[in-house]
Design a protein around this nucleic acid. Structure first.
Length: 418
DNA sequence: TCTGGGGTCCTAGGACCC
DNA sequence: TCTGGGGTCCTAGGACCC
């Protein structure tokens, strides 16, 4: 059996741990730049606020219902996530951390255990130790575990644990699950499925699998197989290194100034290269993209990106800074109100299997210097030693006006009890 | 006025090889 | 009239996830 352990309304729940005033109040956590609602408490969901709703479109509701609105605080969520994982690890040594708030737990050889009780204990411990409410769904495949988790939450089952281990229960659950709520079936596919008369998960499970594969491809075939209780998605306890690294941010305010784009760009390149070195990889090319605000009716629109290959794959920030500056010069045009700049590192491979250039006698980068830079910043704090091209006043920085303190990761933000 | 930021996988089609 | 059969690699775009 496979379990899926998922924190309810994760960002909101993290905020509630540290602020009892939010316990009985509807809460929204915003996306970066304070734009959209990306986490909602149950109360807010019940008011009909959709995932990703632009906050300015619901400002009346916010004040009328006294909804608490917070900026996202990733330092806090990341740390709480690590704590949650370390608790889950006590319950099986085979877990796959699937996202910031979800982990799959492999109970392959746990036949001697009562899995429901085992996971109820997990739920309790999670609440007691770190204050997070979680639900667990258990089933023979990942996709069914997702279904079980869905109903554990929706039906508010006792102990927050639901197991779907016999065909009758599975059929009952699938019958009541819309096709769009199946893991792996998004907007486009559910529209197509509806068009051919498939509306719920039971209908999908019982459809002609060969025919479905022909029409929709192998992903659909796998989903159906999983719905039938045959596990065919790999359990990945040790995730691969990233194949691309993306760093992008919207600006707090739009700008026409080249030097602000350039500074923000340098900042993103620096962050990406740190990530690259953390996983001991090198990258072969960088894509730089800029854009105006696509939602603006009045501004002239401009979107452009360009990719630059470096001579030899590297993890040296300086090489990518040069390349990105070169790229920005190519695509920058005067007279537009820019809203966003970002980069992607691609052609990533392991550092010790770099294919060097036969004709360019050039070292792929000064690893020592970068290592020193990283260790200084690790010891004394992010950005203590940095490239001057990042600028000094960060005028482009995103809005984050309602952020709570980093309660668990900064000494001066630890809550005091007087 | 105000609308996020990451990621992965699959497929079709083009270009090429023998 | 009639023009093979087998491959690989790459890329862009689409679909999905959180």
């Amino acid at each position: 059996m496979i379990a899926l352990c998922d924190v309810n309304n994760f960002y909101v729940s993290c905020e509630r741990v540290f602020n009892p005033n939010l316990w009985h109040r509807p809460v929204i956590v915003l996306s970066n730049n304070d734009g959209c609602a990306v986490a909602r408490s149950d109360e807010v969901k019940n008011m009909g606020v959709k995932m990703g709703a632009p906050i300015h479109q619901i400002s009346d509701l916010v004040s009328h219902e006294n909804i608490a609105v917070l900026s996202s605080n990733y330092a806090l969520y990341g740390d709480m996530s690590n704590r949650a994982v370390s608790i889950i690890e006590q319950y099986s040594d085979d877990i796959e951390v699937y996202s910031i708030d979800e982990s799959f737990i492999n109970y392959k050889n746990f036949t001697h255990l009562n899995l429901i009780q085992h996971n109820q204990k997990l739920v309790k411990q999670m609440r007691q130790w770190i204050g997070l409410p979680v639900c667990v769904g258990i089933a023979p495949s990942k996709t069914l575990a997702k279904v079980a988790n869905h109903f554990a939450k929706k039906l508010k089952v006792a102990g927050n644990v639901l197991m779907l281990n016999n065909p009758y229960q599975q059929t009952e659950a699938l019958k009541h699950l819309e096709v769009k709520d199946i893991w792996g079936i998004g907007r486009a596919l559910s529209a197509k499925l509806n068009a051919i008369g498939i509306f719920n998960a039971q209908q999908l499970r019982d459809s002609d699998i060969k025919n479905m594969r022909r029409r929709f491809g192998v992903v659909m075939e796998r989903t159906i197989t999983e719905l039938r209780g045959q596990s065919c998605l790999a359990f990945d306890a040790d995730p691969e290194k990233k194949k691309q690294i993306i760093c992008t941010r919207s600006f707090g305010e739009k700008t026409q100034a080249y030097h602000l784009l350039s500074e923000a760009l340098a900042y993103h390149v620096t962050r990406a290269c740190v990530q690259l070195r953390e996983q001991t990889s090198v990258a072969g090319c960088i894509t730089v993209g800029i854009r105006t605000n696509p939602f603006s009716q009045r501004d002239k629109q401009y979107v452009q990106s360009v990719t630059i290959k470096v001579p030899t794959p590297t993890d040296d920030t300086r090489i990518f800074l040069q390349a990105s500056e070169q790229a920005l010069k190519k695509i920058f045009k005067q007279g537009f109100q820019y809203k966003k700049v970002g980069i992607t590192l691609n052609d990533i491979c392991d550092k010790d299997c770099v294919q060097t250039d036969m004709f360019v006698n050039e070292k792929p980068g000064d690893y020592k210097l970068m290592n020193v830079l990283d260790s200084i910043n690790q010891r004394f704090g992010k950005g203590v030693a940095r490239f001057a091209t990042e600028g000094f006043d960060k005028q482009w920085v995103m809005n984050s006006n309602k952020k709570t303190p980093a309660y668990t990761t900064r000494w001066d933000s630890v809550i005091q009890v007087n």
